[in-house]
């Protein structure tokens, strides 16, 4: 009796649990396959392709990683297998972390101006900025490339970074958070003779830091993962100027012909680790950020 009623009461929960478990496993499967593939020998991967795991202790290897980090020198005869991965990691870090931090500063300054320095036409200018958000990005892709060319930033990492500085969404998001800060706090600080810079760093920034954090997280992930713009700006540059996400494409294209699947999986894992760490540390913030603001990637 008790048992049946317990099941009856929780039937929908049990069904949901089972379905979600299956879906989660399917969603994780490729990731697991990739991570485990990075520690399997090529003979094992191609000989027992139906297996998810290394099929024997002998099939387990770190060679993928070792090889990946040993192909960092240019060799004429193996020009296709030149993967300066340390450069790529560093470049990715500079682009995503550096670019995001600078944009956060610029955007939060602008948001501060919109909220706390009631200047003339501030509402109209802000409305204009919002209106530009409906313009699809593809319209400016071509001219932006030419713009970078004119500024001499073609084939350089700066060309990857600076276009995001003009972004509207971050300013919008941070402004929305700043608006919720009580104006009295700022007025009181001003009465006490604090300068705007002081107010910004001592009053507004500590209160609005969660907005900056969310914007920063998504900015970081977008820059780390970017391939499309990277292909245009640094695709024709020497390999040492590439980012990791873009370099992976070449490794991927190269892996079938050269039977270097283990190395390819290893490089994918290396590219995923920093994002995974960010996700682990800030998971609740990321999910909250998506839920509250609608940023997706």
């Amino acid at each position: 009796m008790f048992r049946r009623s317990w099941i009856g009461k929780n039937l929908s929960k049990i069904i949901a649990f089972v379905i979600l478990l299956c879906v989660s496993l399917i969603f994780l499967l490729p990731l697991v396959y990739g991570v485990l593939g990075s520690v399997r020998t090529y003979t094992d991967l191609s000989g027992r392709p139906e297996s998810l795991f290394p099929t024997s202790p002998a099939a387990f290897t770190w060679d993928g990683y070792k090889e990946l980090f040993s192909k960092t020198k240019f060799v004429e005869s193996h020009a296709n297998e030149y993967f300066p991965i340390w450069n790529w990691l560093l470049n990715s870090l500079v682009v995503s972390l550096g670019g995001t931090l600078v944009y956060l500063l610029i955007a939060s300054f602008a948001a501060y101006a919109f909220v706390f320095l009631d200047f003339k036409y501030s509402d109209k200018i802000f409305g204009l900025l919002i209106a530009t958000m409906v313009i699809p990005g593809i319209v400016s892709t071509t001219p932006q490339l030419i713009n970078m060319n004119m500024l001499g930033l073609y084939k350089s990492l700066l060309g990857l970074i600076v276009p995001s500085f003009g972004g509207v969404y971050g300013v919008y998001l941070i402004r929305q958070f700043f608006i919720s800060i009580p104006k009295d706090l700022v007025e009181n600080a001003r009465m006490d003779g604090a300068s705007n810079i002081g107010i910004f760093f001592k009053v507004v920034l500590p209160l609005g830091k969660s907005a900056l954090f969310v914007q920063g997280l998504f900015g970081f992930m977008a820059a780390w993962n970017d391939v499309q713009w990277a292909q245009l700006i640094i695709g024709a540059a020497p390999r040492t100027t590439w980012t990791l996400a873009y370099g992976l494409k070449v490794i991927s294209d190269n892996s079938e012909a050269t039977e270097s699947m283990t190395l390819a999986f290893a490089s994918a894992v290396i590219a995923m680790i920093p994002i995974f760490i960010v996700y682990l540390v800030a998971q609740s913030k990321i999910i909250e950020g998506v839920a509250n603001t609608g940023i997706k990637r």
Binding site: G34, N225, V227, L248, S252, A264, A271, M272, R297
Partner: peptide
């Protein structure tokens, strides 16, 4: 969805 497309695509 959080990973680079090139990494997940490669897999």
């Amino acid at each position: 969805g959080i990973f680079p497309l090139t990494a997940t695509g490669l897999i």
